[in-house]
Amino acid sequence: MASESEPICLHYEVPGNDFTRAGEASADLKARLKALGFPSAAVRRAAIALYEGEINLAIHAHGGHINVSVTPQRIDMLLWDEGPGIADIPLAMSEGYSTAPDEVRSLGFGAGMGLPNMKKYTDEFELTSTVGVGTRIAMAVYVS
């Protein structure tokens, strides 16, 4: 597992509207955490939350950036973008609400469960957004 004093830091760039590549960051994180011997429940929760974030970046924000910091105690994930931002955060957080276009829905996305799943599978979740500037999401999964 990661040492107590030196967190493992990872960075990913997510391209916009490329749904064949969205998921690479979460797949990579999952593989690394498993190799490091993290508990499977924590690995699963972190990977699911990050995948939802990747998809949101690809669908809504024309891409974005991810930083991950891993220690034996917690997995911190920071996602940010320079996309259109979210005007009504409480509405965006409600299950089933989605602004995804039809072509994205036809791929199986756009169920309006992305942000709720991110919150559901993490122990800390903070979303800040400014319309016209971008969105920032900080999440953490506790390992134990």
Binding site: S40, L107, G108, A111
Partner: peptide, 25 residues
């Protein structure tokens, strides 16, 4: 068939029945 729905609710070790044969599934 909705991927986020499956992500949030399909249990570990389950058999997932769907019509989505995409890379995202």
């Amino acid at each position: 068939d909705l991927l986020s729905w499956a992500m949030g609710r399909a249990g570990e070790g389950s058999a997932w029945c769907t019509v989505m044969g995409s890379i995202n599934a």
